[in-house]
Nucleic acid binder design. Structure first.
Length: 564
DNA sequence: CTGGGGAAGGGGCCC
DNA sequence: GGGGCCCCTTCCCCA
């Protein structure tokens, strides 16, 4: 990547969203630019319809309908500059105030005693993440509310498909299980949905909840009283809302008898999920608003917090991040304290470290430092055998293998050896080996001689002893029965063993290869639990062990199977 | 196709 | 817990 390319540069401002929200809240408190007043039993709450539409499915449907039928807008000037008052007596004033606070602060602060009112209000207004959070706390199950109409469901599904298509080249596997789970949660049945308010609320499409048409600009309201609440849940609500906080209430913590939902609820592009080995697919990342060009404000989601929060109820004020942290975007587990911000920059594209010489930017300081060596000419890794010096330690490592002639990475098919593991992988992914593999396919049947009884082939990728080489010659590509299999026997040191043995009369081949899949079904292979020596401890770093490579390829094979 | 250089990202260790 | 530093792995690009 040379500097000064004409590619687009994205400069993220992670604080932007929260600052905007903060200022909107200040405006709301000051009554500035408020174009909507919510009332509940005498309490008045000036607010902004754009904010309410962003937070509440109910208002989104409401104002969307207004825009669609602008002239007939009961509230007067749906998309225009008129003011409107929406009477929501069905929502308790306290709950309404809490929900408004939530809308502007991404934090829901309520008393436990008011939880049910808030839940009801959130249901009425279609604030799903609050609904979920309250349910978590109250131990209720979901399924009472479904804001997504069939039509929207189709549209949402269409959008999802488009997003998937955009990421078709993704290397990561789609976690189908999770997709199913997420989608199923969106497809909850729409059971009984009591009628909101006595004012009209036919179910879809929603109509205006009969706002009191006073048309006056509301003044900032002070705290409302909290009278009793009547029971008139609204029927309406269309759901275009998918990601923003559907599950987002999980990070709740109790505060002084109240409940506090931290900002993840609103800001996190994806609610923290329970720890899972499965990674979220990039498709889902996009579905969750990451890849759409926006720069979400990321909130770290420590695993411990998630686990506790998922359990709901919550005890302490706020839990500190533990060492393994889960990326709220890709769900990847990041090990090591302080590593999550570094990882997050891979999502935001933020490159705060700029080379003062050439202007190239880096996501990490250490990368910049290495880059600077190019300008300073520093090559801190000298070869002890020759004058060569290198920028990177791994360059020296590769170079040393040239001196030694070591090519520890050998193709199990054609036995071509490589000095670098990635070159071997590239070789394997290419087609250069296919011919060999075809030729190497052993004959089957009684006449097949896959090896001598008790023959062992061991040793490193290089340095076969003469008789080992002879054995290899006598047993051409026996390992080709499974491309991954042979690597077991190619350990550099005391690598694994590979044993081909004729059983009894030599009809069956037993491969001490572990539980591999069998690419040639006609041949009976038995994977034996050998406990491959050298898998652990063969190399201190565990890095380039061919046995480990083999294990990796095992995983690849499984993934390939899944793909198929 | 292969060898080599470089970048990006993750993990370990330490302060 | 955050961050620096280092190492490792993987990928891409070029000759």
């Amino acid at each position: 990547m040379s500097p000064g390319e004409d590619g687009l540069i994205g400069i993220p401002f992670p604080e932007h969203s929260s600052e905007i929200l903060f200022r909107l809240n200040a405006q709301r408190r000051a009554g500035l630019l408020c174009d909507l007043t919510l009332t509940s039993r005498g309490a008045r709450y000036p607010t902004h319809r754009s904010v309410m539409a962003a937070v509440s499915l109910y208002f989104r449907g409401l104002f969307g309908a207004e825009e669609g039928a602008e002239a007939g807008g009961e509230a007067g000037g749906g998309g225009g500059g008129g003011f409107s008052v929406c009477q929501l007596d069905c929502v308790a004033p306290d709950a309404l105030g809490a929900l408004l606070e939530f809308a502007y602060t991404a934090t829901l602060t309520i008393r436990s005693s008011g939880m049910r009112d808030v839940l009801r209000g959130a249901q009425l207004l279609g604030i799903q993440c609050v609904v979920d959070a309250c349910r978590d706390i109250l131990g209720e199950t979901a399924g009472e509310v479904e804001w997504e109409t069939g039509e929207e469901r189709v549209q949402a599904e269409r959008e999802r498909r488009v997003e998937r298509g955009m990421k078709k080249g993704s290397r990561r596997k789609i976690d189908r299980r999770r997709v199913t789970k997420v989608e199923s949660s969106h497809h909850q049945p729409l059971p009984h949905r009591p009628n909101i308010n006595t004012h009209q609320h036919p179910s879809t499409p929603p109509t205006h909840p009969s706002p009191v048409q006073d048309g006056a600009h509301s003044h900032p309201s002070t705290r409302p009283p909290s009278p009793e609440q009547d029971e008139h849940p609204p029927t309406t609500g269309q759901n275009g809302e998918r990601k923003q906080g559907r599950d987002a209430g999980r990070g709740s913590t109790a505060v002084n008898g109240g409940v506090h939902w931290p900002q993840e609820c609103l800001l996190a592009p994806h609610p923290p999920l329970p720890l899972s080995d499965d990674r979220l697919s990039e498709d889902e990342e996009e579905m969750q608003g990451v890849g759409n060009g926006g720069v979400p404000s990321f909130t770290s989601a420590p695993l411990v917090e998630q686990e506790v929060a998922t359990g709901a109820g919550g005890g302490g004020r706020k839990r500190k991040s533990q060492t393994p942290q889960q990326c709220p975007v890709c769900q990847k587990i990041i090990h090591g304290a302080g590593k999550l911000p570094r990882h997050m920059r891979t999502h935001t594209g933020e490159k705060p470290f700029e080379c003062s010489t050439c202007g190239v930017r880096f996501t990490r300081n250490d990368k910049l430092k290495i880059h600077m060596r190019k300008h300073t000419g520093e090559r801190p890794y000298p070869c002890p055998h020759c004058p060569a010096r290198f920028l990177h330690s791994y360059d020296l490592k590769n170079h040393l293998s040239l001196h030694s002639g070591a090519r520890p990475f050998e193709c199990p098919l054609c036995h071509k050896a490589f000095a670098r593991e990635d070159h071997l992988q590239r070789h394997r992914k290419g087609l250069s080996c296919l011919e060999v593999r075809t030729r190497a396919r052993p004959r089957r049947g009684p006449g097949a001689d896959h090896g001598e009884e008790g023959r062992r082939v061991r040793g490193g990728g290089r340095g076969y002893s003469p008789d080992q080489l002879e054995n290899l010659a006598l047993q051409p590509h026996a390992s080709a029965f499974h491309p991954r299999a042979g690597m077991v026997g190619l350990g550099d040191g005391a690598g694994g063993q590979m044993l081909f043995q004729k059983e009894a009369d030599g009809e069956q081949a037993i491969a001490l290869l572990g539980p591999h899949r069998l690419p040639y079904p006609g041949l009976l292979w038995r994977g034996l639990e050998l406990g491959v020596r050298g898998v652990e401890g063969e190399e201190a770093g565990g890095g380039h062990s061919p046995a480990l490579q083999h294990a990796r390829w095992e995983e690849e094979a499984e993934e390939d199977e899944e793909d198929e």
